[in-house]
């Protein structure tokens, strides 16, 4: 895929200004909800059907007792081996030419298989419309050669988008310059994600960020084995029935059957 893009989130440059959180809502015309302050700057508390990106705030004390405030822009990782697209029965979720996972909302039947499948907890269901929603990496903007709304809004350059190889190169260079516990997150699982982080701290420090994200075993078993096996078996049954029909013909009524009742005298 020559147009494969990666959105790089360099958390070492994020000031949690939340321009991205608002830009996403503005571009995608997503409504706000009435929230409460539950004792954190983080609001809404989680990704929602109408909140496709969320800055997570996390207070952390490191090994030396120093306080750090960690910010993480949460949202769809746009996996290559995407559990959601894999499990979607209608192909509402699909990969585009840029490598991101886009959503054709009209095709969504609200089965919520993707909600269960996603290792990052991204797709969110709206009971009122019976559909799921998630970030689509601003697919229509990418088609128009524009960056996603979040990338456009970021004042510090924490968000960037570009060709896959170049962005991974940038990520690794940045991690090297930062030193310490910094690492690149995303390229080593689910066949590589199209949203990649530069994490200043170790991955296990971050809330809600799986260290080894993978597609749930049931889905692999279902998709890679049971479903193909089942389809194979179903196909064999149909094929068998067809063959039987051609070779033995349709089932006809027995010839001994009389037209009259038995008790004649």
């Amino acid at each position: 895929m020559s147009q494969e893009l990666i959105k790089l989130i360099d958390l070492s440059r994020c000031t949690a200004c939340r321009g991205c959180q608002v830009a996403c809502k503005q571009w995608n015309e997503l409504p706000a909800t009435r929230t409460k302050n539950t004792g954190s700057y983080q609001n809404p508390p989680d990704l929602q059907w109408n909140t496709w990106t969320l800055i997570r705030f996390q207070e952390h004390e490191d090994r030396s007792g120093n306080v750090k405030w960690l910010f993480r822009k949460d949202g769809c990782m746009h996996c290559t081996d995407a559990a959601c697209a894999k499990v979607c029965p209608t192909e509402a979720l699909y990969h585009t030419e840029f490598g991101n996972v886009s959503l054709n909302v009209d095709k969504c039947i609200g089965c919520k298989a993707c909600v269960f499948a996603c290792p990052f907890g991204v797709p969110k269901f709206n009971a009122a419309t019976n559909k799921i929603y998630k970030c689509d990496l601003c697919y229509t903007r990418l088609q128009g050669n524009q960056p996603p709304a979040c990338v456009q809004s970021c004042p510090t350059g924490a968000l960037q988008i570009g060709p896959k190889a170049a962005m991974l190169d940038k990520a690794y260079k940045r991690v090297k310059a930062l030193g310490g516990d910094a690492s690149v997150y995303g390229d080593k699982f689910v066949d590589g994600t199209h949203v990649v982080y530069v994490l200043p701290e170790k991955v296990e420090v971050y809330d809600h960020l799986p260290k080894h994200p993978q597609i749930p075993l049931q889905i692999i078993v279902w998709k890679e084995f049971l479903k193909p096996a089942g389809l194979l078996v179903a196909g064999a049954v149909v094929a068998g029935a067809f063959l039987h029909y051609i070779t033995h013909g349709p089932k006809m009524p027995e010839e001994e059957t009389t037209s009259e009742g038995g008790n004649k005298s």
Binding site: Q21, V22, K25, P31, A32, T33, K36, N37, G39, Y41
Partner: peptide, 12 residues
């Protein structure tokens, strides 16, 4: 502005 109020809804 609802998007801004959603993020910082009340005094703390």
């Amino acid at each position: 502005q609802p998007w801004l109020l959603e993020m910082m809804p009340e005094a703390y």
